[in-house]
Every structure is written in C-alpha cells, then in structure tokens.
Design a protein around this nucleic acid. Structure first.
Lengths: 66, 66
DNA sequence: TACTTATGCAATTTATATCTTACATTAACT
DNA sequence: AGTTAATGTAAGATATAAATTGCATAAGTA
C-alpha cells in the first residue's frame, strides 16, 4: 500500500499530528499509512485526500506514485 | 460511502459473485459495498477498481458519482 | 547542557471490516 | 407449479484497522 501521503503532507507543511487531528485520526495511524505497510479504510483515505487538496488517485493510485 | 461500483459492475455484465471471486472477497461484502453503508479497505477498493477497468476516483470520488 | 518538536516504534485494547453460514425474495425459464 | 440464478439480509466468528499509552531518537534552539 505504497502512497504519496508523506510527500503531499510535507508539501503542505503539515506535521503528522496536524494532519491526524484534521482527519480525526491519530498520529500513529498517519505514520503507519505513510510507511506504506498498512491497509487504511476508504473513509480515512478520502479524509486525508480532502485535507491535502488531492484526490484518491493522486495519493493512492499506483500509476500516480512519485 | 456512496459509490459507482454497482453501475460499473453491471456495465461489465458481471454478477456480484463473479466480481467477489475475482477480487478475493465474498458476495456479501460486495453487496454491502454497493449498498453504500460500508467503509471498505483501500486494498479491496483498488482490487475492485482494477477488475472493473476503473480508477479509485472513478468509483469512489464524490464528484464522480453518477 | 537542557528543552522542545516531530517522528519512529512497540504492546495492548477497542472497534469494525470481512468471512461463514443460512434463509428469504425476485425474476426468468421449463 | 417447480427450478435456477442473482440478490438482500442477518447472526456469529475471525481478522485487522485504529486508538491508546508509553518510550526512544534526532534536530533545532535557548
């Protein structure tokens, strides 16, 4: 489950904790998702995408990985 | 968690059971996802999208809902 | 040095997605 | 009427996402 969350979060100058609070998750959960060895729920993925002004495909679709 | 899974599955002339088998899930899980009152995992969403020749955004991004 | 901030990581608990099994319904067909 | 295929739905068990708590570390800073 590799993804672009970490890169896009840093582009927005947000910390894991700030993003976590805004999407209603914990810092640990965000950390695990960024690490990639995790299978988050669709709701959480959508919440993260909206906070980072991206779409699901931008963050999680294979062909779009940076 | 409304989505376009049911519409796209029917466009591909697949039954819930056929789609379920191809993505490694059960018919019941597919049914619940299509019904929309459910929060599937990202892995399952990706598997479904690939089987239906669509992307995550096509199936699950709000602005793309049919 | 000491202090703070951001992150990594691990153990335990809680919530819930998913599976399994089962039964009901509807539509199409013989 | 009877049969089959596709779907809806529900109860219980299992797997795992996510929360909670805690500690370690690196980088910056007073």
């Amino acid at each position: 489950m590799k993804n672009n969350v970490k890169i896009m979060r840093m582009k927005m100058s947000m910390t894991q904790e700030q993003l976590a609070k805004r999407v209603g998750a914990t810092r640990q959960t965000i950390g695990l998702i960024e690490k990639g060895e995790y299978n988050p729920s669709l709701q959480l993925c959508v919440a993260i995408a909206k906070e980072l002004n991206k779409t699901l495909d931008d963050l999680f679709w294979e062909e779009n990985l940076l």
